[in-house]
Design a protein around this nucleic acid. Structure first.
Length: 704
DNA sequence: GGACCTCGAGGTCC
DNA sequence: CTCGAGGTCC
């Protein structure tokens, strides 16, 4: 098909085509360099490049930061499209010993209101150490495949998933809409062979099968993925158009019948003790399985109960991962360095003689805080038998959760002569200000505030981060560079960058990696960022204890910047504004104090005022209450609930936007009364509060 | 006491 | 992106 003349393109078409060209050219580059097997002819490649340049010439503003025409410093970006999961992909809670599992069973019984001796069965299966993938089938055909991503939005890796043998392109017998979830992994044998091939062809080898699988699935060129021996176990599902099983065990059998590989070690267990027996059996077989596993997953078998148990913010209540003990290794502690964070926290880092732990070379480990180094935990209790950590010591390290390197133990018999206990600095190593440890606080903090360069830089990094201003072309690295050069010292400086260098932009252009276009693009991105939602702005300020969710609460409460600002100016502990602030569900005294102290601190506030002048702050609308019959209502439960427990009733009501309270007052909108309701029902009647029974409530919220 | 959030940390890959 | 400690809220 012939493309339209460049002159005839609308800006929107041009943008779309540039995006397409970027992908095509990148694929071609990759195929050419990595594969020695170009996908398109040289002539075609040149034609695409020329067209890309022509469109960029006509629409200079549209030129991408990762433009294929830029030879230097053009990082690979957005190779994959995004897919929003129809159902969130959750992670699992972790357990580390048998007692954690008994607690898990107890808490489920409590939530469901089941007695200790009632039957409650589970399914146990190995936790594959790979990466999770969600496959969507419609009418039996694979529509797309998405990685987990942040759980809500993943990357579209459909083309790559199609190359995996264990993933059927068509299935039969499944519901019309069927999202299968499972784990992509690589076997030990295939991993070893792949690394041999990589080495033979002079390419870099992978540290472990997990990384090899992840790297292979995220190839932009699916022909490379096809050459990698990936496998897939199905174990779960997302959106389905109709139910296909009553139990977890039945679901696994059904997945198998539909044509998926399922793990042969999945086992239905009638009791917790059976789960633990199976765990230890799997642990014994671990080395001979032929693929990496990092624990055993337990799930409540009855799907109706899973439904009732539901989810916490990131994990289901009805499943848990029982992790294997971490691998340990001994190495020497060469030094202890101190890093200063955004809030001024001084964090000690162990510099270690590099050593391999769990398939990865570790050279740093966190030491948390000064008590941890001294051999005490936050409650003053002894850890590591009270042994302190000294520079020069031989220390045992492991990767907690198979990720974070930590120091587990110290070998006193090998302690070098003359080793002295570590003295934690009482002065900030970055700015020399006093570092103060508040009573009852585990961390020591630099008191320098804005004068501390480390804090200033970390605050700026936070300001431009993804969840805050998210300015394209201005990442952590650039911020550091700009700070060092004195161009950006506080957030407001970002928005005057163009004015300052508008005419003398030479300085920026002359810098390595910055062409005229990329500088222009940066300024355009900054201009776009001027229009910012109130919640993102509050979050960006980087106030201690005020994170993403608190910022959103505050923004919704105050609505616009002037409302927020007025309140912050007027608030005083104990006055009406203070009470109003604390009335926000989720805001307590500590957060409020931190917020108010910061907003009323002169230097800090002046900096914020300078910033606001440069911005166009967007109001935040009140939460959408349209789709829930009880949103915003205050509900009280009383009497015996027969179909659900208190905790369950509360969680469900809150999920629908209701506020659940313990006692009836004039503020109460609705009383749900079971049998045996007493004084509360009476009081509700006196106050004229609407009252209904459990069945009416369930009908109201559309549950059965 | 449990759930949730904030914060800070290191490691790997594209 | 992951995890865990510490802290907070309910």
């Amino acid at each position: 098909m012939r493309e339209p003349n460049v002159e005839a393109l609308t800006e929107e078409q041009a943008k779309a085509e540039l995006a397409e060209l970027a992908v095509k050219l990148e694929r071609a580059d990759l195929a050419y360099h990595q594969d020695d097997a170009p996908e398109i002819s040289d002539a075609e490649y040149d034609r695409l490049k020329q067209r890309n340049a022509a469109i960029e010439d006509r629409f200079p503003a549209l030129k991408r930061l990762d433009s294929p025409s830029d030879q230097v410093g053009a990082p690979v970006a957005e190779g994959f499209g995004k897919i929003t999961h129809a159902r969130r992909m959750m992670s699992l809670g972790n357990a580390f010993d048998d007692n954690d599992i008994r607690d898990f069973d107890r808490s489920i019984r409590k939530y469901l209101g089941l007695p200790d001796d009632a039957a409650l069965s589970y399914v146990a299966e190995p936790k594959i150490d790979g990466l999770s993938l969600s496959l969507r089938y419609e009418d039996g055909r694979l529509i797309h495949a998405a990685t987990r991503g942040d759980g809500t939005v993943g990357e579209n890796v459909t083309a790559n998933a199609r190359t995996i043998n264990d993933i059927p392109i068509e299935i039969s017998g499944a519901p019309a809409i069927f999202e299968v979830r499972g784990e992509v992994y690589m076997s030990h044998e295939d991993f070893a062979a792949l690394n041999e091939r990589q080495e033979a062809s002079g390419q870099k080898t992978f540290a472990n099968p997990r990384n090899a699988a992840a790297g292979s699935l995220r190839q932009l060129d699916s022909s490379i993925t096809a050459s990698r021996p990936l496998r897939f176990f199905a174990y779960s599902w997302g959106e389905i158009s109709n139910s296909f099983a009553d139990t977890q065990d039945g679901a696994i059998r059904a997945l198998e019948a539909f044509g998926f590989s399922v793990n042969p070690l999945a086992l239905h267990c009638a009791t917790v003790e059976d789960l633990l027996t199976h765990y230890h059996k799997i642990e014994e077989q671990r080395a001979s399985l032929g693929y990496d596993i990092d624990g055993v997953v337990y799930k409540v078998d009855d799907l109706a109960l899973q439904e009732r148990l539901g989810f916490r913010s990131t994990t289901p209540r009805w499943a848990i991962a029982h992790k294997f003990p971490a691998e340990l290794a001994w190495t020497q502690l060469e030094a202890i360095d101190i890093q200063v964070g955004r809030t001024g926290a001084l964090s000690p880092i162990a510099r270690l003689t590099p050593i391999t732990v769990g398939g990865v070379v570790v050279s740093n480990a966190t030491l948390h805080n000064e008590d941890y180094i001294a051999g005490r935990d936050s409650k003053g209790e002894t850890i590591r038998d009270g042994k302190d950590i000294r520079v020069g010591d031989w220390v045992q390290v492991y990767r907690a959760g198979d990720v974070i390197p930590k120091v587990a133990d110290v070998d006193l018999s090998r302690r070098p002569e003359g080793a002295v206990p570590y003295t934690f600095p009482e002065v900030c190593p970055e700015c020399g200000s006093e570092a103060i440890r508040e009573e009852g606080d585990a961390v020591r903090r630099c008191s320098g505030g804005l004068i501390c360069p480390a804090q200033a830089v970390e605050k700026l990094k936070h300001f431009v981060s993804r969840a805050a201003f998210d300015i394209e072309g201005l990442g952590a690295k650039q911020v550091e560079q700009f700070y060092r050069d004195g161009w950006i010292r506080e957030p407001a400086d970002i928005f005057t960058l163009r004015d300052r260098f508008g005419s003398g932009m030479q300085q920026l252009k002359n810098r390595e990696g910055w062409g005229e276009k990329s500088a222009d693009n940066l300024f355009d991105a900054i201009d776009r960022a001027r229009s910012v939602d109130l919640d993102k702005l509050i979050f960006a300020l980087g106030i201690r204890h005020v994170g993403e969710s608190a910022s959103s609460l505050l923004a919704r409460h105050y609505g616009d910047w002037s409302g927020f600002e007025t309140a912050m100016d007027a608030v005083e502990e104990g006055n009406a504004v203070w009470d109003d602030l604390l009335s926000i569900d989720g805001v307590g005294a500590v957060m409020a104090t931190s917020l108010v102290t910061t907003m009323q601190q002169e230097a800090e506030r002046a900096s914020i005022d300078r910033l606001i002048e440069r911005l166009d702050v967007q109001d935040v609308a009140a939460p959408d209450t349209a789709d829930s019959p009880v949103a915003g209502k205050t509900v009280v439960f009383t009497g015996t609930l027969e179909k659900m427990t208190r905790a369950e009733a509360k969680a469900r009501a809150e999920a629908l936007g209701a506020k659940v309270s313990g006692s009836v007052s004039a503020k109460t909108d609705l009383l749900v009364a079971g049998p045996g309701a007493g004084s509360k029902a009476k009081k509700a009647a006196e106050l004229g509060v609407e009252t209904m029974d459990e069945d009416a409530w369930l009908a109201l919220i559309g549950a059965t």
